[in-house]
Each structure stands twice: as structure tokens, then as C-alpha cells.
Amino acid sequence: MDLENQRRIKELAEKYGAENVVVILGGSEAEAAGLAAETVTAGDPTFAGPLAGVSLGLAVYHIFELKDQIDEALWDEHISMMEMVLDVDEIISEVSSIREQYSQYK
């Protein structure tokens, strides 16, 4: 995960409390989305950024997991194209499995 994003997420969690922060991912690939999910829960697995060795345990979801929470017209306008293009099941399975393992707030 981008180092600058790691820094921002760490700051937000410190400011508002980890229990009050939900991370919504938009990654287009299961492995990359899984790594991002791991970074904001267990810590940066590449040990490169501000979240190296920092386990925030944040609640983390991929946008594809939240379809029923989002206005249908907005979904159609912004997400439906990518829904057709990406491997939705694989992404959801990867992100949800990381969440089950490492999120302290679900």
C-alpha cells in the first residue's frame, strides 16, 4: 500500500480511534486488495511504510462487499462497469478472509 496512504490512515485512526474508522478499498486485483487489507489490520507486510509492525485491526471492506448499502443509481454510475470487468468473487474472498483473521472491529 502507498506509503502516504498508510500515513494518512494511521493518523486518522489515532485521531478518531481505531474503532471509529472503516477502510473501504477499491483495488482492482485480489492480491493487491488483500495486501492493502492486511496493511490496515495486521500491519504492512512489506515493512516499508508507517504501518510496518503496527496492527491497527481496522474494519476493512472492499467496495464490492457493500453493494447493498449503496444507492442503486450511484452504483450504476460509478461501479457497475468495473463490476463487469473484475473478478469480484476472488476479491471479496481475499479481503473478507483477511478481515476475519485480523480485524478487531467488524
Binding site: S28, H78, M82
Partner: peptide
């Protein structure tokens, strides 16, 4: 235009 891939394309 918006930043989602759909809006961009």
C-alpha cells in the same frame, strides 16, 4: 468528471 474508473473512461 469524477475519479471512478467508470467516470474516467
Amino acid at each position: 468528471s469524477g475519479a471512478s474508473p467508470q467516470a474516467v473512461m
